[in-house]
């Protein structure tokens, strides 16, 4: 691990009035790794991700990206830095086609006066890029003009994950990518997550599935009651230990400085 981390967050806290949802959490993401974030319900996993990507304002904490101080205050800042996030339940708009979902917020306008003056879109170019992307990731969706709600949970997740390859230049953050999926679909989604590495992405992934942590991730950080309690290499840990750390029956070893 000679290379510097892609993402380095220090002292991330989030208070809602008097309630401390996230208390002084540090996070380091190394280049090309898949980092799992685990913890019980209410442990602060989603809050951590939202605070990292500017979806909610942080109470305190600093973020360094590629060793430099990064000002990530809104989701747009995060995207500009090369961080692409797939939110649970908030990944796709049901009512619009797959094509429009993939490019939502980053539609390509025509390279002529119609595009510059009226924002007329270059549908041909966007369709071509989506077909190339799906071919590259082996996503077998051909009818890209159908509304998102017509697809299965697994297909929808595949589309959402494909956006991280299309736009996430450095980091993909995934909030429970297999939450709503069946066994076979989960496996397909996780294979896709692992392939994100090959496309130059480092991955942070929230999950409840210990098998996915052990089979697909490189390191794991455990949150409990808003605090970071342990960080482990996956090769140094087993499922029982992880469950113990999550529930608190095994004492963590990360202390406040």
């Amino acid at each position: 691990m000679a290379a510097q981390p892609v993402l380095e967050a220090r002292g991330i806290s989030k208070h809602y009035g008097g309630i401390v949802a996230l208390d002084n959490v540090d996070l380091t993401l190394e280049e090309g790794e898949v980092l799992a974030v685990v913890g019980d319900n209410g442990a602060g996993k989603s809050t951590l991700i939202k605070a990292l990507t500017g979806a909610i304002p942080r109470t305190s904490g600093t973020i360094r990206f590629d060793g430099k101080e990064a000002h990530i205050e809104t989701p747009t800042d995060a995207k500009a830095a090369g961080i692409e996030t797939v939110y649970q339940d908030l990944a796709l708009v049901n009512e619009i086609p797959i094509t429009q979902n993939v490019f939502l917020g980053r539609e390509i306008v025509r390279d002529d006066w119609l595009g510059r003056l009226f924002g007329v879109l270059d549908f041909k170019k966007m369709d071509r890029e989506i077909r190339d992307l799906f071919a590259k990731l082996d996503i077998r969706i051909t009818d890209i003009y159908r509304d998102a709600q017509a697809f299965s949970g697994g297909q929808r997740q595949a589309v959402a994950l494909s956006k991280t390859v299309m736009f996430g230049k450095r980091v993909a953050i995934l909030d429970e990518p297999t939450a709503a999926l069946g066994v076979r679909e989960s496996q397909m989604a996780m294979d896709l997550v692992r392939s994100l590495k090959d496309h130059g992405l480092s991955v942070i992934m929230i999950t409840h599935n210990m098998q996915h942590v052990l089979n697909y991730c490189d390191r794991v950080m455990v949150l409990r009651l808003g605090k970071l309690t342990a960080v482990r290499k996956v090769s140094d840990v087993d499922g029982d230990t992880l469950v113990g750390l999550i529930t608190g029956t095994i004492e963590g070893d990360v202390r406040d400085e």
């Binding site: 996030t85 908030l90 796709l92 708009v93 429009q100 939502l104 917020g105 007329v120």
Partner: peptide, 20 residues
Amino acid sequence: RLGIRAFAIGGNEDVARLAG
């Protein structure tokens, strides 16, 4: 661009906002 975004915003405002 502005026109097709109306469908996204009307469909799910939160998704649209998070998508930028």
